[in-house]
């Protein structure tokens, strides 16, 4: 399966990308993920101000045929969610890296070290496809 990976981003085993700027982590789903899901038709994101835990579902992405949990790459408080993606879920299919989902205030910086770099993520995708 052909898909795009951005060199300057971090990744999770759940096929999410993450960008870290100062105390804020922005994340979305990867091109690999959107392509595997097919037509994305519904997105549910956490409420701003709530706190999410790494490894615990904080939202849902639904394609025509499947329901998929969103697992935050790190724990922390929700600073912002992307209303455009909620209104137009198909944006995730059009450009997954341009369509961020959630911004989290970092509370546990060590969790960033557990993220994959682009090369490690590429290897992970090869195993999964």
């Amino acid at each position: 399966m052909e898909h795009k990976i951005m060199e300057n981003l971090k990744y999770t085993l759940d096929h999410e990308w993450a960008k870290i700027e100062n105390e804020t982590l922005t994340f979305g789903i990867t091109d690999f993920a959107q392509s595997s899901l097919g037509d994305i038709v519904f997105v549910e994101l956490p409420e701003i101000g709530t706190t999410v835990e790494k490894g615990t579902s904080c939202g849902v992405i639904e394609s025509i045929k499947s329901v998929n949990d969103i697992f935050p790459p790190t724990s922390g408080e929700i600073l912002d969610v992307n209303q455009d993606v909620i209104d137009s879920p198909e944006n995730l299919n059009n450009d997954a890296y341009d369509s961020w989902l959630v911004k989290i205030k970092l509370s546990n910086v060590e969790q960033i070290d557990e993220l994959l770099n682009s090369q490690e993520y590429l290897e992970h995708c090869k195993k999964n496809s």
Binding site: G38, D39, V41, I64, K65, N93
Partner: peptide, 8 residues
Amino acid sequence: PLQYSSAK
């Protein structure tokens, strides 16, 4: 085959 391009 589940889908070729997009099910939609």
